[in-house]
Structures are given as structure tokens and as C-alpha cells.
Simulated scan of single mutants.
Amino acid sequence: MMKLLLALLLTTFVKGFVPSLSSTQRQGGSQLYSTAEEVSIEPKDVVRLFGRLAEKYIMLDESGGMCCYSGCKDCEYRLPDGGYRMADQSAARPKWIPVYEERNFSGQNKEHKTKWSTEIFSEGPSVTKEEFVKALSEMQYAPPLGGPFVGATAGQIEDSAAAEKLFDMLAGEKDKLARFKMSVQLKELAKGEQGLTWKDFAAAMGVQ
């Protein structure tokens, strides 16, 4: 009986010196679990977005159309790397997500309205995340230049995680994404270029 009493007293004494988990420690464990639960985005899912938003044609600099492209000495339209300042460019497959909503070169009788501005914002100047994902899913997909190859028949969006991430990236903390805001964000991602290519789009989405 005496031994049992001593054992109980010893147990109580030891418990008094063992610190309980703090709220911070408990939260830390919860955060670790939450991080492990984060959804990873597959590169091919990002290609499915890029292949909807990217275009084969882009308008660049209206003044570039005044060049004769004959290699004239001291040509004002030549670039430091030896290339030319171009009015527009075309590619065999979708290559650029234009940063502008629409562009008009009246002197050359050229006009371009971007896919994203007309198809995502077809019902108004702003969209919710749900509307954004739906509109993006309904856009026509074509295998783009860049990223792992995804054929036209495999271009459907079955997992909306990538599209939702793109919305969050463009809209920030807003519940709606405005058309002009998307243009502003695309310009930032394009780093001064007139179109967003696969390399920068993939980097922004966190894939290689």
C-alpha cells in the first residue's frame, strides 16, 4: 500500500515539471499539416491555360512598320542586338498572351482584340473566380509554343486548381477581376514586353 502511494505521488510530481504544448506549438503542427495538404499544379495543367490565352499574332510597335528592313546604315528601327523594331509578329502556334486588351494601328489599317479580353469578359468589365474559371474552360485550346506537349484532344480542363491559382494571382485579394486589372498584371508579368511567353507564364505559375 505504501509503495502504491509513493508511486502516485511521484507521478504527480513529475507531471508538474513537464510543460504542456503551447498554443503556438499546436498551431505549428497544424500549419505543417496544412502545408503538406497544398495542391500541387502539374505543368501540363498550366499548358492547358496558356494554350487558351496565348495567340499566334501580336501587335508590337506601330513605328516599326515604317522600316524598309533593308539593313540601312544607322537605321533608327534597328535594335542593339541587330534585330528590327517590328510592328507585329506571327507564329505557327500560340506563342504570346498579349498584355493589351485591344490595339489599333490606324496608319497601317491593323487592329487586334485579344482573346482573353473578349472571351473572359464577354458579359461585362469584371468577373468572379467562378466566372473566370468557367470562361477559361470554355475557351478553345491549341497546343502552344513552350512547355510539355499537350495535344488538342487532351486540352480540356478537368482540374480547376490551376485556373483558380491564376485568378488569385491576377486579382490579388479581390473577389472580382477587372479587365483593366488583368491587363496591368499581365504587363508586370511580361517584364516590359508586349506579350507574355511560356517561360514567364510558367514561372509566375510556379512550374518549370
Rank of each mutant, 00 (worst) to 15 (best):
D175Q: 09
S126V: 11
S90Y: 11
D61I: 08
E102T: 14
L6V: 11
E130Q: 12
R85C: 07
Y69A: 09
M86Q: 10
P148C: 06
S117L: 05
G65R: 05
D175E: 14
R52V: 11
V46R: 01
Y57G: 01
T128L: 01
E102A: 12
I97G: 02
K113W: 03
S30F: 15
R103H: 06
E62M: 07
L186Y: 04
A7Y: 13
K15Q: 15
K115L: 10
V133E: 00
P94S: 03
L177D: 03
R93N: 11
E173G: 15
G64A: 07
Y141G: 08
R103V: 15
F180C: 00
D45Q: 11
G29T: 07
A203L: 12
Q89E: 14
G147Q: 05
A171K: 01
T197R: 09
P94E: 04
S40E: 14
L186D: 03
S137Q: 10
L5D: 14
L79P: 00
P98T: 11
W198C: 02
I97E: 01
K174I: 08
D159T: 09
F50N: 01
E76S: 10
T128Y: 03
V18H: 01
K174P: 05
K174E: 14
A152R: 09
G192K: 01
F167P: 08
A92L: 12
L170F: 12
L170P: 12
A171M: 05
G51P: 10
K129L: 06
S63T: 15
H112V: 11
E130T: 15
A87G: 14
K110H: 07
K176Q: 13
M86Y: 05
M182P: 06
S22A: 03
E188L: 12
P148K: 02
A163N: 05
C72E: 10
P98G: 06
E138R: 08
A36W: 13
A190N: 05
C72N: 03
V47W: 07
Y100K: 00
T35M: 07
D168Q: 09
Q185F: 07
I120R: 00
K3M: 11
Q140H: 09
L177V: 11
T128C: 01
E158P: 00
D159Y: 07
C67Q: 02
F167N: 01
D168E: 14
G172A: 05
L49W: 04
I120Y: 02
G71M: 06
K56D: 13
I120N: 00
Y33I: 14
E102D: 13
A178F: 12
F167V: 10
K15F: 15
K174S: 15
T118S: 12
S122W: 04
E55F: 11
G71N: 05
C75S: 05
A190F: 06
